[in-house]
Write a protein that binds this DNA or RNA. Sequence first.
RNA 1: GGCCCGUUCGUCUAGGGGUUAGGACGCAGGAUUUUCAUUCCUGUAACACGGGUUCGAUUCCCGUACGGGCUACCA
Length: 508
Amino acid sequence: MSVRVRFAPSPTGALHIGGVRTALYNYLFARQHGGTFILRIEDTDQNRYVPGAEAYIVEALKWVGLLPDEGVGFGGELGPYRQSERKPVYHQYAHELVAKGKAYFAFDTPEALEAARQAEENFTYNAHTRHLLSNSLSLPAETVQQRLAAGDPYVIRLRVEPGQDVHIQDLIRGAVVFQSSELDDKVLLKTDGMPTYHLANIVDDHLMGITHVIRGEEWLPSTAHHVLLYQAFGWTDTMPQFAHLPLILKPVGNGKLSKRDGAKFGIPVFPLAWAGETAEDSFPGFREAGFLPAATLNFLALLGWHPGGDQEIFSLDELIQAFSLEHISKGGARFDYEKAKWFNQRYIQTMDPAALAAAIQPLAAAKGYQADTAFLSQVVQLMKERVTVLPDFVEQGYYLFEAIKLYDDEMIAKKWSAGLQPAFEALIGAVENAPVFEAAPLEEQVKQFIQDQGLKPGEVLPLLRLALAGTMKGPAVFEMAAVLGRAESTRRLREGMDYFNRCIAANA
RNA sequence: GGCCCGUUCGUCUAGGGGUUAGGACGCAGGAUUUUCAUUCCUGUAACACGGGUUCGAUUCCCGUACGGGCUACCA
């Protein structure tokens, strides 16, 4: 039987970066086995539904390149893949369970349940307490029929029989056992007719032929209920195998990574930026921070999984080849932004210049720079060894696009003196009239000039750099000059010298 | 509180009854580059604790501690 896995997010807001990792592992598993990767939208909570969240999820998956084979917006024969559109299905199956005696109607109001919890600290709706509450197991059959006929609101609860062991063989954690006496009678169908996660997930996984459920560790405790549900429906022979992933933890401190950590540590914890109703509900994303999709995926893949060996850089194809559930760590993985940046830096270094140029084109345009891809390609080759995220190109290397905004006065004071002026003027002339305005010949010519003048490279080259870029940080001087061009370089050298003199004068 | 899961350098991890416990990020130092960065080299640093089992445990078992998750008509 071919592998079918699903990524099943709930559209309650931006998709957490941990969700992207879950999607990635599902995707890798499916691809490796020649299986099918399905996107299912679990929008059964009408109260928490957030408009735009579903579109965000799809856009995020597209950005990292994890395209579903089936799902909302991706076709497939076993839809609809949006749970809110499957309401009648859940109604039917929930009532089937009641008919089989595996579930029951319950009329308890939220207030009544709240009162029960108040009365008893560890109140649980189960075999011990259900006879004290209002449901079809405690009430006379006629009363139940009357209330149902009268349209009284009701939920359907799973009837958990105590005294049995529920065994799970988790693909990551091994054998896990739960005592059914510890389990509560979970609500399956809510008053509004929508299913809870528990019902919807079992019904859909069954109907959609899911073979492996790869999800976050937070689902491990309720997996016992899920197994009971498969048993109740009589679907145990096709029950999927479970794999519960370790959580992603905060960069520092305790607990799992939350959306608030983004603001707290000044780092993105979402794939894409999210514009919420308020500033407090809006978050930056990896894409906007200047991360490459491939680097983001590589980083996430290794957060909780490693195939063994010393390899760190994996293409998506290599990840597909190397992936295995057995090599997923059991313990939670701390979110390490420094490592994420390192991956990005590596990917930028090895990326094709033309592709990189295309990637930074929008960033340049946003800054108002009129730069064609040929020029951007040159910029990229000068800067790619010294940036970590995409915006660094236009921020750190701004002087390649526009006039110098700030000079390193301290360095100027250290290097410039009025006595250098005649030589510098002659140098400007030599540069202006250079026979070939390309990095290598220019360098050769200038160094010869320096030698002829009886100067040392260390006396002149830093000044050249300062005049060209304003800062001591940056690419090779002559490569910069070549990219800037003859006219602009000469102009900067003249302006630079003027500035040097003013700078010295101001300090005197 | 109850139930469940986990614990190898600061971080991500490899490994596995007998190893100098390996790699990567970070950090520190050095080389190259008359800038910055890249690259290269070197260094730093770990098996949570206590009992077993065993000739021998970091590795297997049991406890403890610590961490995490769940405990809704949320997913």
